[in-house]
């Protein structure tokens, strides 16, 4: 279980998140809010790239800062901007990332091959990634996030660059992962999570505005669908973002 307790984060004088409390258990969580609301900051704290100014993040009751590498090996992360080496093939890149993830070199190649097949890149494992489309790159990122069979999988704006077919494939992967793991999906695109999220976390005015099932959120805001609820909650803020 991943618990976020009274976490706040500021950059200089600007408060990004204030007193955030959340608990994640098995399932798919949609982190939904307009751009700039603090989703990425929250995610970066969960993956230890940022440190909370106050509060703590616990994994099974232990502070993740003290768990260090043993916590991070439980986390799979696809950042908003997936970084890769252009001259590497997906196999080379994933093998390298496997080493960083502590995967034994004897099993790394086989695992990378399976992951690439899982995201539909099994036939281009040796091709240089600089020749890949945005969608293909994103799929390498998804494979990387699943490298060490993580307990917590975090995708930050994962559907950017994916075509409709790839989105469907991705949702299937998410749904499957959500059965056994914590999956946190950060997005400002409502349709990405509408059909698959078990719970939706909404951040507004730097605080957690809601953390509930889609049905409960729809009911609370008297809406037929999540998009309407989203507009009701964020109003002009979301419209401005959309424009």
């Amino acid at each position: 279980m991943l618990e976020i307790k009274n976490v706040s984060k500021s950059f200089k004088d600007f408060t990004v998140l204030r007193d955030v409390n959340l608990t994640f258990d098995r399932g798919v969580y949609g982190l939904l809010s307009p751009n700039g609301a603090g989703k990425t900051t929250l995610i970066k704290m969960i993956v230890t790239l940022l440190h909370p100014d106050s509060g703590e993040i616990l994994w099974n009751g232990e502070n993740i800062a003290s768990l260090d590498g043993s916590y991070r090996e439980l986390v799979g992360y696809l950042p908003q901007k997936f970084g890769y080496y252009r001259d590497d093939s997906p196999m080379q890149f994933l093998t390298y990332m496997a080493a960083l993830n502590g995967v034994d070199s004897a099993v790394a190649k086989e695992r990378c091959q399976k992951l690439l097949e899982r995201v539909g890149l099994g036939d281009v494992t040796r091709k240089k990634m600089k020749k890949f489309s945005g969608g293909m790159i994103q799929r390498v990122g998804i494979a990387n996030a699943l490298m060490n069979d993580p307990q917590i999988v975090i995708f930050d704006e994962p559907t950017a660059g994916l075509d409709p077919m790839e989105r469907v494939r991705f949702r299937h992967i998410l749904a499957e992962l959500g059965k056994t793991k914590i999956v946190i999906l950060s997005t400002h695109i409502v349709s990405d999570i509408e059909n698959i999220a078990d719970q939706v976390v909404m951040i507004k005015d730097h605080e957690v505005y809601a953390c509930d099932t889609i049905e409960a959120i729809l009911k609370a805001h008297n809406a037929d669908n999540l998009e309407t609820a989203f507009m009701n909650i964020y109003g002009g803020e979301a419209l401005e973002d959309a424009i």
């Binding site: 790239l49 252009r86 502590g102």
Partner: peptide, 20 residues
């Protein structure tokens, strides 16, 4: 180059972390 290409945050979030 790691920073420019965006690889650094991915390296830091792995098991190796900042030991990289």
């Amino acid at each position: 180059g790691n920073r420019v290409s965006g690889v650094t945050p991915m390296q830091y979030s792995t098991h190796a972390g900042r030991r990289i």
